[in-house]
C-alpha cells in the first residue's frame, strides 16, 4: 500500500502526526513531511487512522 498526499489540500493541521509520528511530521513551516510513502510493516492500522482523521481529506491510501 502507498500513501498519497495532496499538498493542495493539506494545511498542516497535524492530526496524522499525532496518530503515526514515525511516518508523518509537520515541519517548521507547517508543511507535512512523509518519512516514507510506502506503508511500513505493522503500521497499516495507525496510517489508516491518520488518513481518515484528516480534516482536509488530503491523505489517501492506494494499492501499489
Amino acid at each position: 500500500m502507498k500513501i498519497l498526499l495532496d499538498r493542495g489540500k493539506c494545511t498542516g493541521l497535524g492530526i496524522c502526526e499525532s496518530l503515526s509520528p514515525e511516518v508523518f511530521e509537520v515541519d517548521d513551516e507547517g508543511a507535512l513531511v512523509l518519512s516514507t510513502d510506502v506503508v511500513p510493516d505493522g503500521k497499516l492500522a495507525e496510517i489508516r487512522a491518520a488518513v481518515t482523521s484528516c480534516p482536509t481529506e488530503a491523505l489517501r491510501l492506494t494499492e501499489d
Binding site: 498542516g12 497535524g14 492530526i15 502526526e17 499525532s18 509520528p21 511530521e25 509537520v26 515541519d27 517548521d28 513551516e29 507547517g30
Partner: peptide
C-alpha cells in the same frame, strides 16, 4: 509552531 504541537499531543497521550 506547527512542528511542535503534535509531539506534545503524543506525550500527553
Amino acid at each position: 509552531h506547527p512542528t511542535h504541537i503534535m509531539k506534545y499531543r503524543v506525550m500527553i497521550n
